[in-house]
């Protein structure tokens, strides 16, 4: 199964993203974290419990304490990284960030805030996870 996690320190952003993700049927009940470190702990803890779980992570870049890049660095060193599918969601329209994001193998897409309907449709078409959204 595919678990959706929203990582952003902004309450309102989390609210908007939850609404969008549920309304577009990407996830029924996405989990959210205001702190990247907590999200990381959760993901690694989950992995120890149940086997072969996939995560779709909507990740903000600019956060206090651990930012989005630090989070990606930690994932990059992880054995099960092919099960992590990160969507960078940022308010930045800086191209540098986009380029930097492409260097991480876990990053599947890059979305500029606010997340839109078409962004949600595109998420479902990402090849690595599209099979989770096929209607049976």
């Amino acid at each position: 199964m595919l678990e959706v996690i929203i990582v952003d320190d902004d309450q309102i952003v989390v609210f908007i993203q939850k609404k969008m993700v549920t309304n577009h049927e990407i996830a029924i009940n996405p989990i959210s974290f205001h702190d990247a470190a907590a999200a990381l702990d959760y993901i690694i803890g989950e992995k120890q419990g149940k086997q072969r779980k996939n995560f779709l992570i909507l990740l903000d870049i600019n956060m206090p304490n651990m930012n989005g890049w630090d989070f990606l660095d930690c994932l990059e060193n992880h054995e099960e990284k092919s099960n992590y599918h990160v969507i960078m969601v940022t308010s930045s329209i800086d191209n540098k960030d986009k380029k930097k994001a492409k260097k991480y193998s876990t990053v599947r897409s890059f979305i500029e805030k606010p997340i839109s309907t078409s962004d949600c449709e595109k998420i479902k078409e990402i090849s690595e996870i599209s099979h989770f959204f096929e209607r049976v």
């Binding site: 309102i12 908007i16 309304n23 870049i61 308010s91 800086d94 606010p114």
Partner: peptide, 30 residues
Amino acid sequence: IAWTQSHVVRAPLARIMGLIDLLKNQRNNL
């Protein structure tokens, strides 16, 4: 400054845009 524009300025703006989008397209679910 440019970074600030890119990140700090756009953060509240993106929020506003996202909220208005919700109001417009998801009013029934709110």
